[in-house]
Amino acid sequence: MKLKLTVNGKAVESEVDPRLLLVDYIRDKLSLTGTHIGCDTSNCGACTILVKFPWSNKFVSVKSCTMFAVQAEGAEIKTVEGLSDEKLHPIQKAFWENHALQCGYCTPGFIMQAYAFLQENPKPTSEDVRRGISGNLCRCTGYQNIVKAIIQASKEMEAK
């Protein structure tokens, strides 16, 4: 099937199998390997990306293993590779400064989820953040520094 969409600001056209998962499309066809696979059952959130569907004007976070590539027809998607240009996004910067990652495998998913969460909750408490990221699993950090980083990012983004 023909697939047309926008990925990290660029128009992309591909021929794909209807059964191809969006995450495999992103990783294997577009070689954007920053989006990871951790569970295949939509529990872990390592594959979280942002999708702006044709009928909407804002990005929502999506576990890209739960969508077929063809369901992204006409959509705009943003992966971790498209989050920053030369300068780090405040969320990335806060993750770095707060040691919010260790092995880094879950990190792109957390960063994308944090992006979607902060869009809706610009001034969150720690408790809000914990609820907001509870669809993503991290095995290394115990979450404490991730929560801290997202709070710091929220403050920086508010100040802008």
Binding site: R27, D28, L32, T33, G34, T35, H36, I37, T79, V80, E81, L83, S84, L88, Q92, F95, W96, E97, H99, L101, G104, Y105, T107, P108, I111
Partner: peptide, 21 residues
């Protein structure tokens, strides 16, 4: 010290085995 490994990992530029084809 902030970690030297982080810049690649927070920008999606890490290289895990599954990423190599």
């Amino acid at each position: 010290v902030k970690r030297k490994e982080d810049p690649r990992l927070i920008t999606g530029q890490g290289t895990y085995v599954a990423d190599i084809t």
